[in-house]
Design a protein around this nucleic acid. Structure first.
Length: 259
DNA sequence: ATGGTGGCCGAGCCA
């Protein structure tokens, strides 16, 4: 079962690029971020006619996450627990059942810039809530994954020019430490099991010819519980679509699990 | 680089 995460940067602007990628890559599950749409305006039919079940957690203009799945999605929940006043749509969960059940968590972690400031505080507070949810997933001792745009550059080798990011919320020590704490609970950073060293990026800014210069960063991650990591057959980045027409500034990251 | 690009939506905000 091929499961991908993809920050599409707006479903309206990305409908053509998204469907072209789905038709070519044929993921069984696609976890989307930054749909930038309310649920009522999400083009479900476009995806349902391709055989996907669609679950969204949208909001007007900003953020918004979704899960597309060729197998039925069960026990869908929306919103990251831990703050009833948080109105930003950044978290969705569902269970997909293959040979065994897999709990899917799709996330769009706050950007946090400028740092320091209230947006950075929100990012770090959100990461504390994420850690709490992550601990519960591990305690379940079942196959589960947390996939999405983490807005964290974990290590210097995850940026083409790490020196350019030292003051940025994506690379500040507090952000990196919070990410590492979560991984260290017992998760596997799926990409790093197969693709090591520098040069494996998932985002290239629209500005200053970042794609042409390969000035990228790795901020889209798939974290697996041990029970999910045991099922992993392959992992990859569909980077070529960054060079197609009207691309997102992110590209898909995927895992193939034996389930 | 107080700009550089792009998406939201129709003026700024967000990234």
């Amino acid at each position: 079962m091929k499961i991908a995460t993809f920050n599409i940067n707006g479903i309206k602007a990305r409908a053509a690029a998204l469907t072209a990628w789905l038709d070519a890559a044929q993921p069984d599950v696609a976890i989307l971020q930054e749909i930038k749409s309310v649920d009522e305006n999400f083009p479900r039919e476009l995806l349902e006619e391709r055989g996907y079940n669609v679950e969204t957690h949208g909001q007007k203009s900003f953020n918004g996450v979704a899960i597309l799945s060729k197998l039925p999605l069960e026990d869908v929940t929306r919103g990251l627990p831990g703050d009833d006043d948080d109105e930003q749509a950044r978290w969705i969960e569902a269970t997909v059942v293959g040979k065994t059940a897999l709990r899917l968590c799709g996330l769009y972690l706050p950007n946090g810039n400028p740092a320091p400031g209230p947006k950075f505080d929100y990012k770090l507070a959100w990461m504390e809530r994420l850690e709490t949810r992550a601990r519960a997933l591990l305690a379940s001792e079942e196959p589960a994954m947390m996939a999405g745009d983490y807005n964290v550059i974990p290590q210097p080798e995850d940026a083409a020019r790490p020196e350019a990011w030292v003051e940025d919320a994506l690379f500040r020590p507090e952000s990196r430490a919070a990410f590492q704490r979560i991984v260290n609970l017992g998760f596997t950073d799926a990409l790093r099991t197969r693709l090591r060293g520098p040069g494996h990026y998932t985002f290239w800014d629209y500005q200053a010819g970042a794609w042409a210069r390969n000035n990228g960063i790795r901020i889209d991650h798939i974290l697996l519980t041990p029970q999910a990591a045991d099922l992993m057959r392959d992992v990859g980045i569909d980077k070529e679509i960054r060079g197609y027409d009207k691309p997102s500034d992110h590209v898909p990251v995927w895992v193939d699990l034996d389930l």
